[in-house]
Each structure stands twice: as C-alpha cells, then as structure tokens.
Amino acid sequence: MSRLRPGRWLIAVPMLVLALATIYPLLFTANVAMKTRRDYILDRFALTDRLRWDNIETAWSSVGMSRYVVNSLIVVSSSVLLLLLLGSMAGFALSQVRFRGSRALFLGCLAGLFVPFQVIMVPLARIMADTALIDTYPGLVLVYVAQFLPFTVFLMTSYYRSIPPEIIDAARIDGNSLYGVYRRIMLPLGTPALLSVGILDALFCWNDVLMSLVMMPSADQRTLMVGVTSLRGQYSADVPTFASGVLIAALPVLLVYLFLQRQIADGVAAGSTKG
C-alpha cells in the first residue's frame, strides 16, 4: 500500500513522465537506426515502417568497427579477470587474516580511491611510454586494473568480512594452507560478490573513453567507445547510420542491464553503504 496521501497523483504523474524521458532517447535512437535517411529528414519522430537492418550493416562494416569490438572484448575481459583475482586475494587477506601492517595496507588501497585518473594522467602516460606499454593491450589493462582495483578490494574486503571466521578455522584444521583456504573456500564463497563487482568493473572498463584515448593513440588499437566517436565524422550527414553505430556500441550494455539489473544496482548500493 502507498504511504502517500490522496495528493499522490501529483507526484506519480511527473515521475511517470520522467521515467519516459529516461528511456525515450534510446528508443528514439533505435527507431532512427531503422529508418532511411530520407524518412529521417522528412519526419524525425514517425515510427519506422519496418525493421530495416541496412544501416546497422553499414555501420558494422565501416572501417575498424569489428576491430574496435575485438579490442574492447580483449581488454575488458582481461582487466575484469585480473581485477577479480587480485581483489579477492587482497580482500580475503585483509578481512580474515590478522597480520602486521594489514590496516596500513588496507588504507593504502583505499587511498587509491581518491586519486582520479585525470590527476595522474600525465605521469601515468609517461610511465607507460617509458616501459613500452603504451598502445598495447597489457598497458591499458594495467591502467584499468589500477583504476578500479581500490574499489574492487574495498568491496571484496567488506564482503569477506561477513563470512564467519569459524569456516576458515575449520578449513585450516583440515590441513589447508592459507592459499588452499583462498582457493577452496573463499573463492567459491565469494561468488555473489565477485559477480556483482565483476559486472560493475566490466561496465566501467567497457564504458571508459579517457583512459583508452590516452593509452591507445594509434587508430587500430582503439576500443569501441573511442571508435564510435570516430564514426561521427564519417557519417555526419547520415544520421541513421551514425545512430546504428551508437546502437551497436550500446547493445552489449543493454543486454547486460536487462538480465543483471538487480546485481548492478545492488553493487552500487553496496559500495555506498559498506563505508
């Protein structure tokens, strides 16, 4: 039951309008992508008369698109795997093992949260250039891992903190080393957290523009988000094809969101309340 009084429709209607305003821009783009150029110029809003995939095909086959997708997939998946591995290792040790300096190390990891990429862009680009990592997959992966690791460690630590220490003690008595406990107990137990942190990390990496722009200067190393911006120049007069490119780039995220909406929102909420 609603806890609001009769005047609630005064609130409900604007909220509904806002909800429509939230999804309409993307629906508009999808509709434009299905239209011919002529249809779009004649009427921007009219629904397309049929699903037309020509624009999508043109955008997909334009220079570099498939290459950009492959680049993004490789970089994002390696970054996420590395983030989850390092984040869960550190999170386990920092939450469940008592050792000298653990608090200082935890705070050190947290400090990374307060250093945005913009602030360290210049020296980081220089370090990457000096180590010949600029313009390579491992270089961008390292930059992504460094960017999102503080957040990942933080969330994994707070998740592992909720696991009763008796479980670990029992595993130790059964003869597991600390590494064994990590691999056999903590990794499987951490699955829900690994899943939601992993989805968030994947979104962050997939959506990034600035880091990719700075770390991958040459055209064939571009990730998809940077690649999409280059479509704009190519199809500035052909709005439907440009809209198709945008749609292609948004599609993976849309699918992930449709299926994993709850995990994503819960992950964001967890990041805010565990502080």
Binding site: L86, G87, M89, A90, F92, A93, L94, V97, F99, S102, L105, G108, C109, A111, G112, V115, I120, P123, L124, I127, L142, V143, V145, A146, Q147, L149, P150, V153, S177, L178, Y179, Y182
Partner: peptide
C-alpha cells in the same frame, strides 16, 4: 602468505596510482 596475497594489489595501486 597474507603478504603474498595482498602484494599484487598493493603494488599496482602504489606504483600506478599513488606514485604517479
């Protein structure tokens, strides 16, 4: 062991965030 588990994360954060 705990240091080994924490080291990679701390190293990356120190070298690629705090030091820069």
């Amino acid at each position: 062991a705990p240091y080994v588990l924490v080291a990679p994360a701390v190293l990356i954060i120190v070298v690629l965030r705090l030091y820069p």
